[in-house]
Design a protein around this nucleic acid. Structure first.
Lengths: 198, 198
DNA sequence: AATTTACGATACTAAAAAGTTTCGAAAATC
DNA sequence: GATTTTCGAAACTTTTTAGTATCGTAAATT
């Protein structure tokens, strides 16, 4: 799903303004953080970016496409995966990194995307493709290194992923209880109890 | 937060039509199931209910209030809690009952509420008050019976609730993977491993 | 019978936001 | 220097929907 690059002719005429593009993507995320998906308007993005609405619709087919591309470029890159060699430590750090993200300004972006996904299949698919699936793959791969050592041979890593990240999304979206390191450490221990080799 | 009853004067004049009220609440849920929160219009509710929009706004201050009352009256009552005496069986049945609800037509109602809660604090608070908190209280109370017997003395039931229900909401909202009994049974065993008395 | 309140139907108002178009200027190619 | 394409600004169209108002009728009290 290339959205942009293949349209940028290298022929005649004024070339695309890459700075404007970056301003638009950055502004989109800012507005999304402040207003949520439903209240993010293209007018607000354009104004914040110091760009024209016409420029936005010149390069993206609709509002959601802008936000999806912004997610891919400016958020989905952020999380390196720890691989310390110690299973418990790997998971602890993974979860701590994630809640640091959720508790920061970007947390609202995730809320916004999940909310929008409920009524827009394109957003739903994009969120899974751009964020959920790659992250799960990476995380599973790191944990896989421990299989047979500290990790039980029969551990179901898909279930483990759900058990680790489900509660975090749950608290983020429902808003009961905070997302602290005390909490993620306790969650880590709960899950570890069932997958540690005895 | 009484919304209705105290307004129904018993004085003069035509009394409130309780059947119309029920039709409106029922229609609200139907439309919500089919269209999601954002696309649920008062016109659609009125038409479906065979009622007038004026009647809706006569008794509810705005659209969200109708949907919240419908949630409270027609959904939040549905889930009895199993109390078999066996901890594993209690949890298994709890989760099975819940996914039966989520996989049925009402599943979309939960998606819709969580989505709407992200941009409407009143909906967020109502969802927690009407659904989340009462259910968590009930569930914790049932599990509490086992403490000291099959359940470890030091088990953190808030964390356990998150570990059990977080993944289910996660799968419901993100839409990766199904919500089957095989899945909830596996999840039950994962959580049990950390809270069973050894 | 007179009064009061609710009802359904329907027209209406008002606001918001998506997406389009127009325009004059800027930045590239040939 | 002519052409092409983009740019920002701003007016504009269109659609959608929340919420209100009007009206004639139905169901209750006094």
């Amino acid at each position: 799903m290339e959205t942009t690059e293949e349209l940028a002719h290298k022929g005649r005429g004024r070339p695309r303004d890459e700075e404007a593009r970056n301003r638009i993507l950055g502004a989109a995320l800012q507005v999304l953080e402040e207003q949520g998906f439903a209240n993010t308007t293209t007018d607000a993005i354009a104004e914040r970016a110091g760009a024209s609405k016409a420029t936005i619709y010149r390069w993206w087919p609709h509002k959601a496409a802008v936000l999806i591309e912004a997610l891919r470029e400016n958020v989905a890159q952020e999380m390196p995966f720890p691989d310390t060699g110690d299973l418990r430590e790997d998971i602890r750090l993974q979860l701590r990194n994630f809640i640091r993200l959720l508790n920061g300004p970007h947390g609202r972006i995730f809320k916004a995307f999940v909310a929008a996904a409920q009524s827009d299949p394109e957003v739903a698919e994009a969120f899974k493709t751009v964020w959920v699936r790659p992250r799960r793959m990476d995380a599973k791969q790191v944990l896989e290194h421990h299989r047979g050592n500290s990790l039980r041979e029969d551990a179901d890593l898909d279930l483990v992923m759900d058990a680790l990240y489900g509660p975090l999304y749950y608290r983020l979206l429902i808003g009961h209880g905070c997302l602290s390191e005390v909490y993620t450490d306790a969650l880590t221990d709960l899950v570890l109890a069932s997958i540690l080799k005895t």
